[in-house]
Amino acid sequence: MNWLQLGNLQGISTSPPFTVPLQVDGALTKVSWKSSSPTGSKIIVQTRLSFTKGADWTEWRICTNGGAVPDLSPTDKVDHLQMMYRVIISSTDYAAVPVFEEITFSYEPVIVINNTGDMACKPEIWITKEGNGEFSIVNLSSKAEEFKLTDLIDQETVYINNEQEDIETSLASTYRYSSFNDNYLSLPAGLNLLKLSGKAKVQFRYQFKYL
């Protein structure tokens, strides 16, 4: 115990373990909080993780407000991950009272495809839309280029052959080339992080190319 704790100028609040209810290939993460820290005071937020249902934990890591969750890469598989966080509040002046209001953790699932080939591959994609509207895929590992379809109809299935630049739809007498932004999806060699937007069921088929 240091002199700040003895003088009631420092406090630590630790959460119980909680489970992130996701089972995904990977996720974009963010931790953010609302607080106020008058001059002479400080608030530190830390997290630690367990990938083994609480049997083992990572070390406590300092978080950045608005930054990613420490020790969790977007390519790390998230399978009911367990987390804890703690808030350390300190002040050098009884008149400078910091206030911690709330904390939020967000997880945005991504699809991780590791192209083990030597060349980029262009997959076939089947998209069955749920609800009317748009659907898009952004390859975060490839200049964040967006593959996007608009004006899709609920339960419509669209097939895209990105290699042959062919588009077909399950709707009769309908063509979807005008609904597409002409940005066919390519998966460069190495890890590809795909961020999907719009509610739909999606199926990929691809074959890696070797020299």
Rank of each mutant, 00 (worst) to 15 (best):
residue 51 F to D: 11
residue 75 T to M: 00
residue 70 P to K: 10
residue 64 T to V: 14
residue 94 Y to S: 15
residue 58 T to Q: 00
residue 84 M to N: 05
residue 99 V to M: 08
residue 103 I to M: 13
residue 100 F to K: 08
residue 77 K to P: 14
residue 98 P to H: 01
residue 73 S to I: 08
residue 93 D to G: 08
residue 54 G to W: 07
residue 71 D to R: 11
residue 105 F to C: 02
residue 71 D to L: 07
residue 100 F to Y: 15
residue 79 D to G: 04
residue 66 G to K: 02
residue 67 G to A: 04
residue 54 G to C: 15
residue 77 K to D: 05
residue 76 D to G: 03
residue 70 P to W: 12
residue 104 T to S: 13
residue 80 H to E: 11
residue 70 P to L: 07
residue 57 W to R: 06
residue 66 G to W: 12
residue 86 R to H: 06
residue 57 W to D: 02
residue 100 F to I: 12
residue 104 T to G: 08
residue 89 I to P: 00
residue 100 F to P: 02
residue 74 P to T: 07
residue 55 A to Q: 13
residue 55 A to T: 14
residue 87 V to P: 03
residue 96 A to F: 00
residue 64 T to A: 12
residue 94 Y to W: 13
residue 74 P to R: 08
residue 98 P to S: 01
residue 50 S to P: 10
residue 74 P to I: 06
residue 49 L to H: 09
residue 79 D to S: 14
residue 69 V to F: 07
residue 78 V to C: 11
residue 82 Q to P: 04
residue 51 F to T: 15
residue 71 D to Y: 10
residue 73 S to F: 11
residue 90 S to F: 02
residue 92 T to D: 09
residue 99 V to H: 04
residue 88 I to L: 15
residue 68 A to G: 06
residue 59 E to I: 13
residue 76 D to Q: 06
residue 50 S to M: 02
residue 56 D to A: 15
residue 79 D to I: 09
residue 88 I to W: 01
residue 58 T to I: 12
residue 77 K to A: 11
residue 49 L to V: 11
residue 65 N to Y: 10
residue 105 F to N: 15
residue 82 Q to V: 04
residue 91 S to D: 00
residue 57 W to M: 05
residue 91 S to L: 00
residue 86 R to E: 01
residue 73 S to Y: 05
residue 62 I to R: 13
residue 99 V to L: 08
residue 58 T to R: 01
residue 97 V to W: 01
residue 66 G to H: 01
residue 54 G to F: 00
residue 87 V to A: 05
residue 77 K to I: 07
residue 88 I to P: 03
residue 64 T to G: 08
residue 97 V to G: 01
residue 73 S to P: 06
residue 104 T to K: 03
residue 53 K to T: 09
residue 52 T to F: 03
residue 93 D to Q: 12
residue 101 E to T: 09
residue 84 M to R: 10
residue 104 T to P: 02
residue 76 D to P: 02
residue 59 E to A: 14
residue 102 E to Y: 07
residue 52 T to C: 09
residue 86 R to V: 13
residue 54 G to Q: 01
